[in-house]
Design a protein around this nucleic acid. Structure first.
Lengths: 210, 210
DNA sequence: TAGCTAAACGGACTGCGGTCCGTTTGTATT
DNA sequence: AATACAAACGGACCGCAGTCCGTTTAGCTA
């Protein structure tokens, strides 16, 4: 017989800051996660992402500050949790959605479409995304960023770009970073349509040189 | 006679965080600036930019913390002051230096050369540059960034790129951001030579489509 | 040289993200 | 129902960037 009792659904590797609920979560923990996400959405809705401090959130949700960090690991982790729904929806659109953004269209068309979609997405959720990126040691290695990068790289290869698709994908991704786009729109008053059009130009030329 | 005495060299508009010495600076202020810059370089040299805290710096330089912020405005401002020499040297190279990076060479050659130079520059000073960018509300509007952007835009126009050169310059500049390049080299072990080569590919294709 | 004033000074203070650790609680086991 | 323990809890605590304001001083003027 085993002398080391193991909790049935225990998943130690999952760690905090993971998505919705790491399989088996104690009832109070799950309740607090919902309480916190709810309060966080409330604060962001009322006063914007910048106004969301971890202390305020804890107070609003009626839990201790330690609990907030236990659930989400960091402020960036919390922001990512708030974004996870919108992010997943975006991902499934470009991976499984209808053409031209999803599979079935020529790679260049998909690149153009996914860029335009990304611009709109950032205009809607960019504030949270920027908050998630800020103070993120590893903003490039987070699952969503890796998936996004891989997708761009795959499309580039499919479009016949043989010259270092990995770095090309990095370069193109940098072009669509939330901070950059929000700055262009918010500070310089660039029309979002222009952003999409510029992306089209850029990606068309990159692919055309192949 | 004027009832409002004005200090001779007073330049109220200069503000803090400006370059070397805003014209007429009180002797003690100038001394403390040197003391602080010197101590800062020492700390960075010993332990890296991340180890430089404003409290430590104040203690090392033997001045009050308030003085540090009076001189440099913020941590980012201090980092920019530390960088200003290297930055100015880089700027004068691409603006007045010998071809192909300076004037005299075809625009595409200049773009290729300036990108390669930027990569090397970031490998040398990127840690400071990243620290300066971090926690900078306005990293895109700082003089050096504006000049850099304008220069890229000018070269693009000269190379015949008529499609939104302003946004194209933004996109290309994003490709060479310190955080991105340092991540590629430091985390993914990308050979710097590959970065320059990839830049060459990118900019060649962008210009070729004109 | 004495006096005056704007500028510089310094360090206590605030607010924030993040950590630590003693206490409480959910849940499986008997 | 009683027991046991891993997990969750909470809030005091820490380090840091940045601010405030009463005090000191450089340097002009008389």
């Amino acid at each position: 017989m085993s002398l080391i009792p193991i909790r049935p659904g225990a998943q130690p590797g999952a760690g905090p800051a993971a998505g919705p609920a790491a399989e088996s979560e104690r009832r109070d923990a799950a309740r607090n996660r919902e309480l916190l996400l709810c309060a966080a959405r409330e604060i962001v809705g009322e006063s914007g992402a910048d106004a969301l401090t971890m202390d305020l959130l804890a107070r609003r949700a009626g839990v201790g500050k330690g609990t907030v960090f236990r659930r989400f690991g960091s402020r960036a982790g919390l922001m990512m949790a708030l974004l996870s729904g919108a992010e997943a929806e975006f991902q499934s659109r470009f991976m499984f959605g209808p053409p031209p953004i999803g599979p079935g269209a020529p790679a260049l068309d998909r690149l153009v479409a996914v860029g335009a979609a990304r611009v709109s997405w950032i205009l809607e959720f960019g504030e949270l995304a920027r908050a998630a990126d800020a103070s993120a040691h590893n903003r490039f290695d987070v699952p969503a960023a890796v998936l996004w990068h891989r997708h761009l790289e795959m499309l580039l290869r499919e479009a016949g770009v043989t010259a270092d698709p990995w770095l090309m994908a990095s370069a193109l991704a940098a072009t669509l970073e939330p901070e950059l786009l929000l700055h262009a729109v918010g500070v310089h008053g660039i029309d979002p349509e222009r952003l999409a059009e510029s992306w089209r130009e850029l990606v068309t030329r990159v692919v055309a040189g192949a």
